[in-house]
Amino acid sequence: MKIDMKVNGTLHTVDVPPMKRLLDTLRDDLRLTGTKEGCGEGECGACTVLIDGEVVNSCLVPAIQGQGVHIVTVEGLADGDTLHPVQQKFIEYVGTQCGICTPGMVLAAKALLDENLSPTREEIREAIAGNLCRCTGYQKIIDSVEAAAAQMREGANA
């Protein structure tokens, strides 16, 4: 089935079975391999992408529901060589170790900051509760998101 799918601002037409997972469509058909597969059952958040600004697990979205919406993957965050503040702060504050959870974690954090530029640490914890990390112990991830929020607030006030 041919599906018109807008990903990171670009319209693509893919020819896939309608119940193919959006995760596999992104990785196999569009070669956007930043989106990772962890559990494949909606628990871990490694496959997180944004659909019309909302965080979703792409392992749970059939490709047919990618029609007519705007999908943002981790590849869509940087502006050329300039990383998104969340990405930049994950580097500076060592919010990433093995890296498997990072694309989903960064997108969940971005979705939070798009709604709330001054989240408490508790609000950050809740926003990334669906993204499991087995390396960092989460503290450095929360530090990274806090720092990104601070930078984005400065940008908003500049």
Partner: peptide, 26 residues
């Protein structure tokens, strides 16, 4: 019927429940 897919997509992936026909009502 499938809406948000949060149950059915897991069942299909794990080959527990794979319906022959699915209607997308999202």
């Amino acid at each position: 019927p499938v809406a948000g897919g949060t149950d059915l997509m897991v069942w299909i992936t794990q080959r527990r429940v794979v319906p022959a026909r699915v209607i997308d009502i999202w």
